[in-house]
């Protein structure tokens, strides 16, 4: 058997890392530490390779200025008051029963899906269960576990993790994330969230392609 276990594990770990980054981006307002990391040599190198440009001000302004501006942008985009983008699946996916809206039917589906895997929402998490960052973090976990399975040379386990990812992507994340990203790109005033939304969309398209390929294989 020519299985390259390490390559499979690394690939899953890379996916997990991207999901982790996106989770962080959408979970809450950035901190200085986070901005520092994004400006750091390793990430900025990777970004420029991919022709991802966060704008001049991002790189030139001080960390505290960047944070201050992005906190306002985050609040305006995702929190309100007033018109904002509610980052929840149930808002973007209209349920048949009319049970849409915050904490809708989709919310419960997501919550149940996640809890069925043995995970539970942490006591400190007080958001709504189908927040975009929750769904991304769930994918981060699933891909990380997949990576662990490959490392243990446990093909069955890893494939099982993959099948759960596939189900979650198809039933949930892929159904709405591009609409969510479109809304951000449309409404963002600074490059940061527009670019991150673009990256998210880009990455999710890649994931969608990967799933298809995997299924065919």
């Amino acid at each position: 058997m020519g299985t390259n276990w390490k390559e499979l594990a690394d690939s899953a770990k890379s996916r997990s890392d991207i999901y982790g980054l996106l989770t962080r981006v959408f979970r809450e307002e950035p901190t200085e530490a986070f901005i520092k990391e994004l400006k750091g040599p390793r990430l900025s190198g990777a970004f420029s390779d991919m022709e991802i440009d966060l704008g001049e001000k991002f790189y030139n302004d001080s960390k505290s200025e960047v944070v201050e501006a992005l906190v306002l942008e985050f609040t305006r985009l995702f929190i309100g008051p007033g018109h904002h983008i509610s980052a929840h699946e149930s808002i973007f996916v209209e349920a048949d029963s009319g049970a849409g809206g915050l904490w809708g039917a989709k919310t419960v589906e997501v919550k149940k899906f996640i809890e069925t895997t043995g995970l539970e929402y942490g006591a400190g998490f007080n958001g709504i269960p189908d927040h975009v960052s929750v769904e991304l973090e769930f994918m981060q976990q699933l891909t990380e576990w997949e990576s662990n399975k490959w490392t243990q040379q446990d093909r069955k386990g890893a494939e099982y993790c993959l099948s759960v990812q596939r189900m979650f992507l198809e039933q949930h994340l892929l159904c709405w994330i591009s609409g969510f990203c479109d809304a951000i790109i449309d409404q963002a005033e600074m490059p940061f969230y527009r670019v991150m939304a673009d990256l998210t969309r880009n990455y999710m398209e890649f994931e969608q392609q990967s799933i298809k390929t995997d299924t065919a294989a």
Partner: peptide, 18 residues
């Protein structure tokens, strides 16, 4: 080799899951 893994853990962002 990018800092994604590290970045994800930064900034006091709390995991949604226990």
């Amino acid at each position: 080799g990018s800092g994604f893994a590290l970045a994800a853990g930064l900034g006091g962002s709390q995991s949604a899951f226990a």
